[in-house]
Design a protein around this nucleic acid. Structure first.
Length: 279
DNA sequence: TTGTGTTTTATTGCCTCC
DNA sequence: GGAGGCAATAAAACACAA
């Protein structure tokens, strides 16, 4: 940027209470008026009374000046106006400028800067919101992983306990006629454990996202661990969903689904598409 | 008092819209 | 092509600690 810019035009300042800026850009893209050290020592106090601000004699004596801050009254009115509408139509700009004793250009500049400040704050708020959402999702994800590990080891130990019974049962069945097809008692413990483990370690187990490979198993509610036999042990899908329900936050719920799905289906386009659509 | 960080006011250049 | 908006930036004004 140009370091020798014009900040103040003494010859044109008497009309208002602020440094002259003109109504068009080209007005202050002209020459340069530099302020000496002596001149800067004549600086008026930051907050002057409105009477003082509009006193032409004051400016006759105090000139020339550089940049000057708006008074609290002026800022208050501008803030109120900004709250009502953060964009400035030409008519409103003129009215405000008249009311405040400012150049229309100054009002426009103030609104522009105010919009920039608002945008910055908004970005900060959005960032905080996303960060807290991310942190909470991360912690719930961690607890789900731990829960998963716990259930896996439970399955392993139960499988080990079932193995001897299976061997004995196989010896008995060898002396009996073939069972009816579909008889659940003849599903081997090994098959059960394998299925249960697949279920626990598969992505669909912890996700509400529809899994085309096994939606019937996941969403049917027919858990391999009947709640009668395992009080407190809820099917993975139900467990996840009830946890999300407690939070009653759509964004979090969505993220949980995406995280769970993404863990096991990172290659699938649907997941990433869903993510970007949301983003 | 002075150095340093933050906020406010203003400028510049580019872009979009009518 | 002019008006207005925005991002980037400069520089003054201000706050504050050492």
């Amino acid at each position: 940027m140009d370091s020798g810019r014009l900040f103040f035009d003494p010859s044109a300042c008497h009309g208002g209470n602020m440094l002259f800026l003109g109504n068009a850009d080209n007005v202050f893209r002209g020459g340069a008026t530099m302020m000496s050290m002596d001149e800067s020592s004549k600086r008026r106090p930051f907050f002057s009374s409105p009477d003082e601000l509009f006193d032409e004699e004051y400016y006759d004596e105090q000139l020339p000046e550089k940049k000057r801050r708006l008074t609290p009254e002026q800022v208050h009115l501008l803030e109120k106006s900004f709250e009502a509408e953060n964009k400035l139509e030409p008519e409103r700009k003129t009215q405000l400028a008249k009311k405040l004793g400012l150049q229309p250009r100054q009002v426009a500049v103030w609104f522009q800067n105010r919009r920039a400040r608002w945008k910055t704050k908004q970005l900060e708020r959005d960032y905080d919101l996303l960060k807290s959402s991310h942190d909470s999702l991360l912690s719930s994800y961690d607890s789900l992983v731990k829960e998963n590990e716990k259930l896996k080891s439970e399955v392993v130990s139960l499988t080990e306990k079932l193995q001897p019974k299976e061997v004995a049962g196989a010896a008995i069945s060898a002396q009996k006629p073939d069972p009816l097809p579909g008889d659940i008692t003849h599903v081997s413990a090994l098959q059960l454990s394998v299925k249960a483990e697949d279920r626990l370690s598969s992505g669909s187990g912890g996700s509400a996202v529809v899994d085309e490979d096994g939606p019937q198993l996941v969403d049917s509610g027919n858990s391999y661990f009947p709640s009668d036999n395992y009080p407190g042990c809820v099917a993975p899908v139900d467990g996840v969903q009830s946890e999300e329900d407690d939070r009653s936050d759509d964004a979090r719920s969505y993220f949980s689904d995406v995280f769970a799905a993404a863990e096991h289906q990172q290659q699938q386009e649907e997941v990433s598409l869903g993510w970007w659509v949301w983003a």
